[in-house]
Design a protein around this nucleic acid. Structure first.
Length: 267
DNA sequence: AAATACTACAACCGCGCTTTA
DNA sequence: ATAAAGCGCGGTTGTAGTATT
């Protein structure tokens, strides 16, 4: 191979691995001249021995105009935390709320910086399987382990908000009863594909008032509708509270996410 | 100074959804 | 109606750079 870490797909003679400055220039110049019309067919006329996928990824994550690279601001960190709490590993959805950031960048940031902050720290109560948790309504278990651990609880979601969600998505009827009738798959969908990973436990965190109000203040576009359709399941637990990992339990009820994000960002 | 461990991030892979023929 | 192609997403891997021993 000509360059370290760069290999050729022997069957199709396609190059893989890190992009050179020359390749970047070729792709950028081609797109500027012809626009994006078909990723898999653009590579050859652009003078690149790359798969369409590879071209698209390079463009979307690196070459595209108006992208921002480098450190995340504390506001961005805060946004990521909040949205991840709400949406789970929906990186593209999260990234769409951050100006000039890509899903890949957000995902990398989460996996390398934020995830470890949560790792090993119990967010709150031990939970049943996701499916069981989502299907259950409030029950006696809430009072037992959760409040002992969390030290407080914050009643949250209201029918009004649930109704808004239903109206907003346009494909989900809006009563709390209907949310309760979601299948476990539907409910878990928003939490991630596998349903049992650390991330999924994390992202299924209960949503408190602060997070909700933040989210309602967001400007969700029509394209976002698909990802919010299952969100009702997250509101099923009305005794929700959020513990910010690494923070003392006694902070549970008083610390704002902003405090947490600032702390995280500064350290 | 060298070896090792850790971190950050670019890029690839596989899967599922949508569009097209 | 359906198979194929294209696209986008999330998970994972590979590697360069940095810190630590």
């Amino acid at each position: 191979m000509a360059e370290l870490g760069v290999v050729l797909d022997e069957k199709r003679r396609l190059k893989k691995g890190a992009w050179s400055a020359e390749e970047d220039q070729k792709l950028t110049a081609y797109i500027k001249r012809h626009g994006i019309w078909n990723w898999s067919r653009m590579a050859e006329p652009a003078g690149l021995r790359r798969s369409g996928k590879s071209c698209r990824l390079r463009w979307m994550n690196y070459l595209r105009p108006n992208l921002r690279h480098g450190n995340f601001t504390k506001e961005e960190v805060e946004t990521i935390i909040k949205l991840h709490e709400f949406l789970g590993n929906k990186w593209s959805a999260i990234a769409s709320k951050l100006d000039g950031r890509t899903d890949n960048e957000v995902k990398n940031y989460w996996n390398t910086r934020l995830k470890k902050q949560f790792k090993g720290k119990s967010m709150q109560k031990p939970r049943k399987s996701e499916a069981a948790r989502v299907c259950d309504s409030v029950d006696a278990n809430h009072e037992s382990s959760s409040q002992e651990e969390a030290g407080s609880s914050t009643p949250t979601s209201t029918p009004v908000q649930l109704s808004n969600l239903g109206d907003f998505t346009g494909n989900q009827t809006s009563s709390p009863e209907n949310f309760g009738s979601l299948s476990s798959n539907q409910a878990i969908g928003v939490l991630g594909d596998k349903g049992n990973s650390f991330d999924n436990n994390l992202c299924s965190s209960y949503v408190d008032d602060e997070v909700q109000s933040y989210l309602w203040a967001q400007n969700f576009s029509v394209e976002d509708a698909h990802m919010v359709q299952d969100v009702g399941a997250l509101f099923m637990d009305s005794t929700a509270t959020v513990l910010y990992p690494g923070w003392p339990l006694e902070m549970a009820s008083s610390a704002s996410l902003e405090d947490f994000a600032v702390n995280l960002w500064e350290n």
